[in-house]
Design a protein around this nucleic acid. Structure first.
Length: 289
DNA sequence: AAATCGGTCAACCGCAGGGAG
DNA sequence: ACTCCCTGCGGTTGACCGATT
């Protein structure tokens, strides 16, 4: 049995543009009760809207910290660089632009930036597939990133590494790293690997500078904060993780096999997320030019 | 003045992940 | 382990509005 829909279309709920009164009710309710519990919010607040709609209205429009006005040149440059790094991860991009919403940035990209940038994927702003003719009509598919022309986009959706295996060599390396960290600024990327469990996932080259994996040492697992230096990052941003997983075979000590690397990093939900979330500024400054 | 076009943006939709029970 | 609920995300739609014909 499937999940019940968020809000039935025949419940007499209001749709479309929000009225000033609805805004006022929602704003007041959240001021008193705080955010969250969106599903129940409309009933409690006396709004004839679905929870999703309330959430969206709040996040994209009513939130007090929303920044109004045009996107500045600096913000635009930042969006471009972040998009180069992250692709269409609008919420992540928005997270780096205080007061801007993912929806706003997405709209801005689709209507403005995309057209400005020459030679960039989707540069013409036409990210949608060409209008389908009678002849070429196919089932709708999500737009695909051109992996050849956009190799630095971090793939975050397809799959992820849920575990990271650090061999002994890396442990030694880690000791050095810890020493190094004593004089590393707060901006230096650190990744907390906190999901090491009973499975082992490995990443082979080009990540080898940090993960010199081999089968002999594949029995040790531990939690570690490791430094992500510039070389690593450079490789990191260029590697196609899905290939790492798909190309791994069981011979020759390949660690990135399908069985050991069930998924590639998902920067939003995996333990690798801090790389992006905490140190994106550093990433931008060092890689996205 | 009316019709059409194109750009912008708020809102909707469907899906997926995470967590609770 | 499984189901269900809640929430968040990215893609898409459609209303609105100014510019152009």
């Amino acid at each position: 049995m499937g999940r019940s829909p968020c809000c039935s279309k025949d419940e007499g709920l209001n749709r479309g543009a929000w009225t000033g009164m609805e805004d006022k009710i929602l704003r007041e309710y959240i001021r008193v009760h705080g955010e969250g519990k969106w599903r129940n919010l409309p009933k409690r607040a006396g709004l004839k809207r679905c929870g999703k709609s309330c959430r969206l209205r709040w996040l994209n429009y009513l939130r007090p910290d929303i920044k109004r006005g045009n996107i500045t040149r600096d913000e635009e440059e930042l969006i471009i660089r972040l998009h180069k790094l992250l692709g269409n991860r609008w919420s992540l991009i928005a997270g780096r632009l205080p007061g801007r919403t993912d929806n706003e940035i997405k709209n801005y990209w689709n209507t403005t930036i995309g057209k400005k940038i020459q030679g960039y994927p989707f540069a013409d702003g036409n990210r949608k597939p060409p209008k389908q003719t009678q002849e070429n009509q196919k089932p709708t598919q999500p737009p695909k990133v051109d992996t050849n022309s956009c190799t630095k986009v971090v793939r975050t959706k397809a799959s992820r590494c849920t575990k990271v295996f650090i061999p002994q060599e890396a442990q030694n390396l880690d000791d050095q790293i810890r020493d190094d960290n004593d004089h590393v600024s707060n901006n230096a990327p650190l990744v907390a690997v906190d999901q090491v469990t009973d499975q082992v996932a490995g990443i082979e080259e080009p990540l080898s500078p940090i993960f010199p994996l081999d089968d002999e040492n594949s029995s040790c697992e531990f939690m570690v904060d490791f430094k992500m230096d510039e070389n690593f990052l450079s490789d990191f941003l260029n590697v196609d993780f899905s290939e790492l997983c798909n190309n791994g075979n069981d011979e020759g000590g390949s660690v990135a096999s399908a069985t050991t690397c069930d998924k590639v990093p998902d920067f939003q939900s995996s333990s690798m997320a801090p790389v992006i979330d905490y140190d994106l500024d550093w990433l931008i400054d060092n890689t996205a030019h």
